[in-house]
Amino acid sequence: MKRVDPNKEALQPHHYPGSRTYLLVFAGLAILTLIEVGVAYITSDIRVPILIILSALKALLVILFFMHLRYDSRWYAFIFFGPLVLVIPLIWISLIR
């Protein structure tokens, strides 16, 4: 059986995005926040779905780029997103009641 180097990941150089990508993500987050605040004052029924989609987009930007889940091992994504199978129905039911 092939022995896995315990420090393989730690010793390998990371390939994380640089400052430019972080600044672009930050700009995206700032713009989405502004849009959210604008949408909050709309009286239409589509307000809530739009706000939820916008916040999910912002959360994904932080998770994928700032938390490096786009660049790291898929195991981390599996561990982190696993609970969402239970969580999303729970939140959804609470929201539509």
């Binding site: 420090n7 990941e9 195991w75 981390y76 982190f80 696993g82 609970p83 969580v87 609470s94």
Partner: peptide, 27 residues
């Protein structure tokens, strides 16, 4: 044994429990 950094793996596991904690609170 996974070849992943144990501390980082532990932090992601902790964050998964935090997802469940905050989700229950939000619900």
């Amino acid at each position: 044994a996974t070849g992943l950094d144990s501390a980082k793996l532990g932090m992601w596991l902790f964050l998964a429990t935090e997802v469940m904690l905050f989700s229950a609170m939000i619900a």
